[in-house]
Each structure stands twice: as C-alpha cells, then as structure tokens.
C-alpha cells in the first residue's frame, strides 16, 4: 500500500511529534531549512516508503500534514 504526505512547512513548529509515530521512520527535521516562524520544519526522506497510515497527520497538533493513500479496489458495498 502506497501513500504520500505533504507538509505545510511554513506552519510547522518542528515539535517532532510526527517523527516517532511514523511506522516506516521516514520523517525527520530538516535542519537545513528555517521557516518563516523560525522553526526547522519536519519533512520526509523517502516518500516511496510511505504507507499512507496518516499517523503523522493525526498527531500533528497544527494540522499541517495532508496524507494520501493509493486507491484500494473496494469490495462491493454491503
């Protein structure tokens, strides 16, 4: 199952809550970037590993993460 995430980086506070909840460990703080609020924002390293579990999105207190997941072939509706 593949997923994709997008961070609204200018609103990231670099709090790191999203990092330990990622099951595939791909979120890190990008210290090479400082956003307009003065924080180093979180980002992902290897997007292709993302499974779209949305853990990062659910825990982010600032709601800046959007998560996509590959469309599954749905079973017929009951």
């Amino acid at each position: 199952m593949k997923g994709k995430v997008e961070f609204r980086s200018d609103w990231c506070k670099g709090c790191e809550l999203c990092i330990p909840v990622c099951p595939v460990d791909i979120i890190f703080i990008d210290e090479s970037v400082t956003n307009s609020k003065g924080y180093h924002p979180a980002t992902v390293s290897e997007m292709e590993k993302c499974i779209g579990c949305a853990n990062c999105g659910r825990i982010c207190p600032d709601s800046i993460i959007t998560v996509w997941r590959e469309k599954r072939v749905k079973k017929a509706e009951k």
Binding site: G3, K4, G52, A54, G57, R58, S63, I64, I65, T66, V67, W68, R69, E70, K71
Partner: peptide, 8 residues
C-alpha cells in the same frame, strides 16, 4: 490514483 486520507 490516490485518495486524501487525512487533512485539516
């Protein structure tokens, strides 16, 4: 094709 599964 991808679905949004989480957003603000």
């Amino acid at each position: 094709e991808m679905d949004v599964v989480y957003q603000k």
